[in-house]
Amino acid sequence: MRGLAFSKRNDLEVLRDPLNLFFGVGFPIVLLLLLTAIQANIPVSMFEIQHLAPGIVVFGLSFMTLFSATLIAKDRGSSFLQRLYTTPLTAADFILGYLLPILPMCLAQSALCYGAAVLLGLKVTVHMALAILFTLPIALLFVSLGLLCGSILTDRQVGGICGALLTNLTAWLSGIWFDLRLVGGAFQKVANFLPFVHAVEMERAVLQGDYAAVFPHIWWVAGYAIAVTAIAICAFLRQMRRQ
């Protein structure tokens, strides 16, 4: 009950920020439209809608880190959290209150992206519903990254690290815009060691109904999600003690 009140507040804070709506929903859909238009004029297999849509879904989810981290960093900076630390809310209420409300937003964002992709020619299949469900571990990874960054950075730093650096890392090292094998070498090795390309490959496999191809990507994504969540919880508890 107490944690629910806090979750509801976080939900409203994120949803009522027009910039969040633009970057969370508008920007990925604009990208889909733009790249589909390019594909119509200069056919590139990377930008075929069944290939492109899962990548855009993952790229869109990377903005959730920014939203989550900004909310937490601003709360820390404005003494709002200090006020709440003097109430009967527990550490678990805070952590769940920051993590859980963003997850349904991630599902809604993915559904909207796939919905837009359907309007652009993607076939509606039962696999699409599962692809939306499979975004959950990816969403947990990005939202936990938000909890981590929000716990250790100021809201200005969050803008740079989560808004610019992370979204670019996700974009360049995920194989959304180009085949990583074209670059190869250390670049490909680094990309394969990070979770972003695995998130995209997992989504592509699920959308195509090729469930065998989900492995080993899901292990990479789940492993990173669990590890980042654990580190984020420790970082949050540490800053809570410091307050």
């Binding site: 009950m1 709002f80 003097t86 809310l89």
Partner: peptide, 28 residues
């Protein structure tokens, strides 16, 4: 206890009513 911190610690995107509801909620 209750605290009104030095900086104005309100949730900016929530209405006045929602801010009060939030505090009522966290106090159960």
């Amino acid at each position: 206890i209750a605290v009104s911190p030095q900086e104005t610690a309100v949730a900016p995107n929530l209405t006045v009513q929602e801010n009060l509801e939030l505090m009522a909620g966290v106090h159960g």
